[in-house]
């Protein structure tokens, strides 16, 4: 198992994702002899997981069963332990495309936070690219570095514990893309420019507030960035349901001769129609943050 390479069977030391039901999953560190509690009972790692095929059904002690999935950055995003607010897949997907990431890309990122975006970047730039990620919170930086190792992507990433606004990314002239998710991105735009290759590159800043975007755009323009393009992307989920729509009774129709004589009271003359359709969730995330993209021209 690795976050950048599939394997077929679960091995000791892997991180697996236990699928309990729709929108209910948990990550499990697979360890010889260890046990994991779920609402369907205990999973014994030695017998239930190790040596099993990813995607197979595992019967828990109470008789219920779960599926064990191979980890992906997307599954990690919905199961990872939150140490900060995190980026979700909809924004991550947009960032990955608009930053033009691909195998071999060198990317700078700050802050690392809980590592949700970092894992997705690593997946895309592997096996020849590299991620330089900067996190000013020491414990978070240490914790995420540990996770990268556990997920077998440690060789693709350098974690630095410093303040990007003061100290930059620790590298200059190497990056194809820079991503900023910090409270005052405008203070790091200069460092972003320095980190990017002389031939140019792409930059993205994620900010929840429009005032931050305003200041960042100003700083980007001031530093000579081009194609400055702020946008917002939201996910809309459609729940598939069968709904039943009752038909109203208009009473006997005089014009139609063949009205069935079922004038008895209480029996609905017209039934209802069952329909497969989708409904909108009652509530949905209506705002995550603005994504501001820009291009650094060749200098």
């Amino acid at each position: 198992m690795s976050f950048v390479e599939y394997s077929d069977f679960i091995q000791d030391g892997d991180v697996a994702v236990v699928y309990l039901g729709h929108d209910s999953m948990m990550p499990v560190k697979v360890q010889q002899g260890a046990q994991t509690q779920t609402r369907y009972g205990v999973i014994r790692h030695s017998t239930d997981l190790i040596g099993q095929r990813y995607g197979s059904k595992v019967t828990c002690s109470k008789g219920g069963w779960v599926h064990v999935l191979h980890p992906t950055p997307e599954l990690w995003t919905v199961t990872l332990p939150h140490r900060t607010q995190i980026l979700y897949t909809t924004d991550i997907a947009t960032i990955t495309m608009m930053l033009e990431l691909k195998p071999g890309s060198v990317v700078c990122e700050s802050g690392t936070g809980s590592g949700s975006l970092s894992h997705a970047i690593l997946r895309t730039v592997a096996p020849t690219g590299h991620l330089h990620t900067v996190e000013f919170h020491q414990q978070r930086a240490e914790k995420v570095a540990e996770e990268f190792k556990e997920h077998r992507v440690g060789h693709l990433v350098t974690v630095r514990n410093q303040d990007v606004c003061k100290d930059g990314f620790g590298v200059t002239g190497v990056a194809d893309a820079v991503f900023l998710d910090i409270p005052s991105p405008w203070e790091a735009v200069g460092h972003a420019k320095a980190a990017l290759k002389r031939q140019g590159g792409r930059v993205c800043s994620f900010s929840p507030c429009i005032e931050q975007v305003q200041k960042t755009c100003e700083a980007l323009a001031h530093q000579g960035f081009e194609e400055i393009s702020p946008l917002e992307v939201l996910l809309r989920v459609h729940d598939v349901r069968t709904v039943s729509l009752p038909l109203p009774d208009f009473g006997p129709d005089a014009s139609s001769a063949q009205t069935p004589p079922d004038a008895r009271e209480g029996t609905p003359r017209y039934g209802s129609v069952a329909l497969k359709t989708t409904t909108a969730p009652r509530e949905m995330p209506g705002h995550t943050g603005y994504l501001t993209f820009a291009t650094k021209p060749r200098t």
Partner: peptide, 21 residues
């Protein structure tokens, strides 16, 4: 199959200019 989800995305671009965002 598990994790089935039917979705679409909503995308909006912004004009950001001093006092005209």
């Amino acid at each position: 199959t598990v994790n089935l989800r039917l979705t679409d995305t909503w995308l909006r671009h912004y004009q950001v200019l001093p006092n005209r965002t």
